[in-house]
Write a protein that binds this DNA or RNA. Structure first.
Length: 576
DNA sequence: GCCGTTTTCGGCCCGACTGTTTTCAGTCG
């Protein structure tokens, strides 16, 4: 039973929760949370690191003690400390902390006063009016808890970046219409271009906080005003998306933008740096640590704050505490890929399978978007719902593309296919027709639930075929809908490098497959990625910027993405 | 429990808002 990084992270998180409720030293609690985060976003499996004899205490936030605990988890699948904690404290109490408004102190108070151990019991107690009797609680808090318990049924929701884009557009327009507003920025994970966002963090540049807040809560789409102060407010829109607003004056706008863009981990590292220099960084600026009302040393822009710490500007996409501050200090920040670097698209469907536009229409759409080449990659027969092309159908399409290339100006069509990797690792079309193509994109669309070892073997066998070029949407995940399939992705990425294969970064907003962390891992391994729009109609090509966002979050430079190069340069790479 | 140009102890990010309280604790981001 392989132990994944997520398993280790989840055990540490639960330890942190239970220690927190027990009232343990809060820095000890934080140590477990930090460790969970470090392990959770590590690109390489911690089990592999151990197998290679690496010293885990060299990882950030991991010391000798936690290194030993990780080893215990990898070897046994469990942690004895967690078992002990679960015997001392009801494990379900950790779940109660997920309810907004309830932290460790209140959960513990409820447990001690009323003997509660579950959300269900809490609901009954609140309905019976017993929660208000507990010291530190009152009627309002009791009602809030009931409301939140109600809402918790809908569980925490994360929104696709592409879903919130139109919301952002109209909300920003509403806010900018107010005279007191000089500038609006949407910060948070939206600005970091994370694949999903939990809420929107909006920053308004203005000297009149109350007026802007009042204007904000009047936005027509607001369903509920959660809080409203002089400089801050939170609302829930009718779509259930929460929006937090902060109003900030010019002198501290950059500090606030930095602060509310996050990530939290990046900010904490930056504050640590400030403390080392005898300074204090908060959302108002950088100050000398010793004087409380001292002069602001920086704060109007993000640039001047980084500059004060002798750092170059760090773009929001990199602010995840995955080494960007060290890279900035060393002058080794990546020169990130941009949309303008893209020369072609390597994943396109047409009406020949499940696309909604003809080859000609897709070619025109690609040319209109500044691309020089476009790989036509319709499905193979195994994807029956898509009416995939069989060998004869593909031969016809090959001939049609040859004819079109003679006619078309300013765009080159590439003969390709999105061929299925069948359950036994073979490809879904005969070699003699696949050989006639410029390149082959291979993907899994069936048997998602194989055990990890079998699934890994399946892809390895497919890669052994020299006609295998690009592995499309490798994990098959669909955000909010379908989890990634069980795979040893690390091993498969190494295998791809050895065999001269490539992986796709699928740009569809609900896929974004590979994840940012695996993009970064690919770069470390020297594995080049193909950015694919997976377009099924003309505007499907507009998914490319989301793929670029993800690539940038994965530290990729233009050289790391195959289709930033002209076709003549990459064509030989597909001839293994 | 981690960490170190303040290195083996004594620190550990910080301010706004809410609800409960008469001056603050808890939670959140």
């Amino acid at each position: 039973m392989p132990v994944h990084n997520a398993d280790v992270a989840s055990i540490f998180d639960e330890v942190a929760d239970l220690l927190d409720i027990e009232g343990a030293n809060r820095f000890r609690v934080r140590a477990y949370r930090n460790a969970a985060r470090t392990i959770g976003q590590l690109s390489q499996p911690v089990a592999d690191l151990l197998a290679e004899g690496k010293d885990l205490s060299e990882l950030p936030d991991i010391g000798d003690d936690l290194a030993g605990k990780i080893e215990e988890i990898v070897e046994t699948g469990t942690l004895s400390l967690l078992d002990e904690l679960e015997q001392q404290t009801a494990p379900a109490l950790a779940d109660l902390m997920r309810i907004p408004g309830l932290g460790p102190k209140r959960v513990r108070a409820l447990h001690e006063a009323l003997g509660l151990t579950s959300a269900e019991e809490l609901k009954r107690a609140a309905e019976a009016g017993r929660v208000r009797e507990v010291e530190g609680f009152g009627e309002k808090l009791e009602q809030t808890i009931l409301d939140r318990l109600e809402a918790a049924g809908a569980e925490e929701r994360r929104w696709l970046l592409a879903t919130v884009e139109p919301v952002v557009e109209s909300l920003v327009a509403h806010l900018e219409a107010h005279d007191a507003v000089e500038q609006i920025d949407v910060a948070g994970s939206y600005r970091r271009r994370k694949e999903t966002v939990g809420d929107l963090d909006v920053l308004a540049l203005s000297d009149d906080g109350p007026a802007v807040v009042a204007h904000f809560v009047e936005y027509e789409d607001v369903d509920e005003v959660v809080q409203q102060g002089d400089t801050r407010s939170s609302v829930v829109l009718r779509s259930e998306l929460q929006v937090d607003l902060r109003v900030v004056p010019p002198a501290s706008y950059g500090a606030a933008l930095l602060y509310f863009t996050g990530s939290k981990a990046h900010n904490i590292r930056l504050r640590d740096r400030a403390i080392e220099d005898g300074l204090k960084l908060n959302e108002y600026g950088v100050f000398r640590a010793e004087d409380d009302d001292g002069e602001r040393m920086a704060g109007a822009t993000e640039e001047e704050i980084y500059d004060l710490f002798d750092l170059p500007y760090i773009v929001p996409e990199l602010r995840e505490d995955r080494g960007e501050l060290d890279a900035a200090a060393d002058g080794t920040l990546p020169d990130l890929v941009t949309r303008d670097d893209l020369r072609g698209n390597l994943h396109t469907h047409t009406t020949d399978s499940d696309g909604r536009a003809s080859i000609e229409a897709m070619a025109e759409a690609a040319r209109a978007r500044g691309l020089d080449y476009l790989a036509i990659t319709d499905h193979s027969p195994n994807v029956a719902v898509a009416q995939g092309l069989d060998a004869d159908g593909l031969r016809e399409q090959i001939d049609a593309i040859d004819r079109l290339n003679d006619e078309l100006d300013g765009i080159r069509l590439l003969k390709s296919i999105e061929v299925d990797i069948l359950k036994d690792g073979s490809l879904d079309l005969p070699d003699d027709v696949l050989e006639r193509l410029d390149l082959r994109v291979c993907a899994i669309h069936s048997s998602f639930d194989l055990p990890e070892d079998d699934q890994t073997e399946r892809v390895l066998r497919a890669m052994d075929n020299p006609l295998f070029n690009i592995w499309a949407h490798p994990t098959g995940r669909r955000l909010n809908e379908r989890p990634p399939i069980a795979l040893d992705l690390d091993r498969l990425m190494e295998a791809a490098v050895e065999r001269g294969c490539f992986l796709e970064l699928n740009a569809q907003p609900e896929r974004l497959d590979l994840s940012d962390v695996y993009c970064q891992r690919a770069k470390e391994l020297g594995l080049k990625l193909a950015l694919g729009a997976d377009a099924h109609w003309e505007s499907g090509l507009d998914a490319l910027p989301y793929g670029i966002d993800q690539a940038r979050r994965g530290w990729l430079e233009a050289d790391d993405v195959l289709n930033t190069r002209p076709w003549s340069e990459i064509a030989p790479l597909f001839d293994r």
